[in-house]
Write a protein that binds this DNA or RNA. Structure first.
Lengths: 360, 360
DNA sequence: CTGTTAGCGCATTCAA
DNA sequence: TTGAATGCGCTAACAG
C-alpha cells in the first residue's frame, strides 16, 4: 500500500493542479483497464471484490471523480433538468424553485436554471433552445400561466424532444401539468368570509390574464353565486399583485359598492394595500371590513391586524413537478408507466384576525 | 435547392423524432466535412461565404443545434457556472440569484443551481463535488456569511480546481469577494435617525453569527460612538430576521432601556415585528419611536406607517459576481489580468414615514 | 479555404 | 471476471 501511495503522490504532482484525474489515470495506477474502473464507479456486480477494493483505494487516494460531462455524452443522458422560472421576487416563485431543487437533488438530478424576464416569444425560444442544446433530460416550466404566453406555449414545445412538466396552467392535450388548486383556494376564502357573516364580499383579483388570478376568482364566483348573489360585477376589481394596486383596488371597490362588507384579495400584498387603504379611510378591519389574502407570506401574520389567508404549499408543488418529471423520463425509457396528466395540490385556509367578525 | 429539401425531409423521417441531428448529418447533407460545419457554427472566418450559406441553409432545414455537452467535452470548458444559494424565501437571496441569472444569460453562461438547506459540512462537500463533477467553469458562493460556515469554507475550496467568487463575507487570503456594504447601510440608517433628532437609538440585530448582521451593527456602533454614546450594550438585542423576533426584540429592548427613542432593525421583517409591538404597547411610530429597517422589501412602503429602510441593489450585486467570475476565468486562460479581491456595492437610504420626527 | 486525423472522458458492445 | 475495440458529438492541429 505504501508503494501505491508513493505512485499516487508523484501522479498528483504531475497534475500541476490544473488537469483533473481521469479514469485512465486511475486505471494505470491500479494496473487494470479503464473498463474495470468504470465498473467500479458504476457499482457493477461483475468485479471481484478484491479488485474493487483496490480500485476504490486508488480512486480515493487520487481524488478521482467521474467527469459527468463525458458520462452524459456516452450515456446520452445528462441527469440534468432544465427549469424555466419567472419573477423570483415573488414569494411563490421562490418557494416553487426551492421545492424543485430539493427534490431534484434528492433524486440525483442537477438543475439548469433559466429565468424568463420578459414575455417575448423570442426569449422563450432562446431559453428552450439553450436548454435543449445542453441536453437536459426534461424541462419544468415553472412560469405563471399568463394568457399571452399560453397562446404560444404549446407551439413552442412541439419541437421539444424531451419531456416537459408544466406548472399552474390549465391542462390541454397530452400536457403533464402540476397545479396548485387555486380555485379551491378562492372557495375556501369566500366560504370562510360567509361563515363569518360577512355578506357583500368583494374581490381584488390579480391581473385578469393570469391563470392563477382567474382560478381564484372562479372559486369566489362559485361560492357567491351559490350564496345567492347574482350581480357580482360591481364586486370585482382588478389589481396587479402589488400592494399599491390593492390600495387603489379597495378605493375603487368602495366607490362602486359602498356596502362591501369583506374583501378577498387574491394575494397577500394586495391585502396589505387594502389594509392600508382601509386604515386611511377609517374603516377598521375586521370590524368594518373582513379581509382574506392568498399565499401566506411570512409577513402576513404580522400585518395589523394579522391576515387570514390561503396558504399554498408551493414546495410540495415543486417537488411534485420533479416526481412527475421522473415518471415521464422513466416512461420514455421503458415503454410502460402512464403518467397522470394533471396533479393538484390543495391549499388550506389559515385563519387570523383580519376576518374574525365578532358581531357574527 | 428543392432537391436538397427533399433529402432533408427523408433524413428527418429517418430520425423517428427521437434521435437528434448531429454535425455528421449536416455534413453529409451538405456534402462537406464535419469540420466545415463546425467552422460555420462557430463563426470561424475561414469558410467561403458560399459554403457558409449552403451549410447554414442545411442547418436551418434540418433544425440542427450543436450538442453543448459534446462541445464542452472537447473544448474542456462547459460555459456553465455553478451557483450555491441559500434560503430563497428571503427576498435578498432571490434578488441576488436573479441578478446572477440575468448577467450569466447575457454573457452566455448557463447556471447550475444548488441550494444549501442545512449547514452541514458534508452537504457542502456534496454540493461542491457535484458542481465540479459537472465541470462547471466557476462557482459563485451566494450563501450568507455565517460564522459556522465560514470556518470550514476556505478549507472546502482548497481542493476546488475552478475559480470561485464569494458573496457577502469578509475577504481573506486570495478570495475574490463581492459584497454589499452592510456596514455603510448601518451608518446611513443610524445617521438618519440622529439627524431626525432621535437620541437613544437601539438596534435589533440579525443573528450574531451572520456576517451581514455583524456589519450592520458595526455601522450603527460606529455612528453611535461618534455621537458620544458610550455604553451601547443595553441598546442591543438580537433577533433571527423574523418578524416574530422583531416583536420580541422591541419588548426586550424597552425592558432594558425604557427611554429608547428609535430603533434600527437589521431587516424589514424585524422592523415589521417591532412596528407590531409598538402598536400593542401604545407607542406610535414615528412620534414616540423612530424606526428604520433594512432591505426595502416590496411591502415596506405599505407598512403602517411606511417604513424608512436601507435599500440594497442585490441584483447589481449578483451581476457583479458574474462579472468578477468572468474576469477570473479569463485571467486563468491568459495569464494576465488581475482581479480585484474585494468589490463593494453601496446601499442607499430610502426615507419614508416611520422615521420622520416631526418634533425634530 | 477545406478535409483528415486524433482525442476529450467515459460507457457499451463484444471477446477472452 | 476482465480487457480491447468502438463510439457518443464535437473541436484542435495539422495537412493540403
Amino acid at each position: 500500500m505504501l508503494t501505491i501511495t508513493g505512485t499516487i503522490t508523484s501522479d498528483l504532482t504531475k497534475m500541476n493542479g490544473r488537469q483533473k484525474v481521469t479514469i485512465k489515470d486511475v486505471a494505470r495506477a491500479a494496473g487494470v483497464s479503464t473498463q474495470t474502473v468504470s465498473r467500479v464507479i458504476n457499482n457493477r456486480p461483475d468485479v471481484s471484490s478484491e479488485t474493487r477494493k483496490h480500485v476504490q483505494n486508488i480512486i480515493e487516494n487520487l481524488g478521482y471523480a467521474p467527469n459527468v460531462i463525458a458520462r452524459s455524452l456516452s450515456r446520452g443522458r445528462s441527469n440534468t433538468l432544465g427549469v424555466v422560472g419567472f419573477g423570483l421576487e415573488y414569494f411563490g416563485s421562490s418557494e416553487v424553485l426551492t421545492g424543485i431543487e430539493r427534490k431534484s437533488s434528492e433524486l440525483g438530478f442537477s438543475l439548469t436554471l433559466s429565468l424568463l424576464d420578459k414575455f417575448e416569444s423570442s426569449r422563450v425560444d432562446q431559453i428552450l433552445n439553450g436548454l435543449l442544446a445542453r441536453q437536459v433530460d426534461g424541462i419544468i416550466w415553472a412560469v405563471p400561466g399568463i394568457d399571452q404566453l399560453l397562446e404560444w406555449l404549446s407551439g413552442k414545445f412541439e419541437n421539444v424532444s424531451v419531456p416537459a412538466v408544466f406548472m399552474n396552467k390549465f391542462q390541454s392535450g397530452s400536457d403533464v401539468v402540476v397545479s396548485m388548486d387555486n380555485r379551491l383556494g378562492g372557495v375556501l376564502a369566500t366560504e370562510h368570509l360567509l361563515d363569518q357573516r360577512y355578506r357583500r364580499i368583494g374581490i381584488i383579483t390579480g391581473p385578469s390574464n393570469w391563470w392563477e388570478a382567474q382560478q381564484r376568482e372562479a372559486g369566489w364566483r362559485e361560492v357567491m353565486q351559490e350564496a345567492g348573489f347574482d350581480d357580482l360585477e360591481d364586486l370585482v376589481v382588478e389589481g396587479d399583485w402589488s400592494a399599491a394596486s390593492g390600495e387603489i383596488g379597495l378605493h375603487n371597490l368602495l366607490a362602486r359598492s359602498p356596502y362591501v362588507e369583506a374583501v378577498f384579495a387574491s394575494n397577500d400584498q394586495m391585502a396589505l394595500g387594502a389594509l392600508q387603504a382601509a386604515r386611511r379611510i377609517g374603516l377598521s378591519v375586521p370590524q368594518d371590513l373582513g379581509l382574506v389574502g392568498f399565499d401566506d407570506i411570512p409577513e402576513a401574520a404580522y400585518f395589523y391586524p394579522s391576515l387570514t389567508t390561503v396558504r399554498q404549499d408551493l414546495r410540495t408543488l415543486g417537488a411534485l413537478a420533479v416526481e412527475r418529471m421522473c415518471d415521464l423520463i422513466q416512461a420514455r425509457q421503458q415503454e410502460e408507466k402512464s403518467v397522470p396528466g394533471l396533479s393538484w395540490v390543495r391549499p388550506r385556509l389559515v385563519v387570523r384576525r383580519s376576518s374574525i367578525n365578532s358581531s357574527g
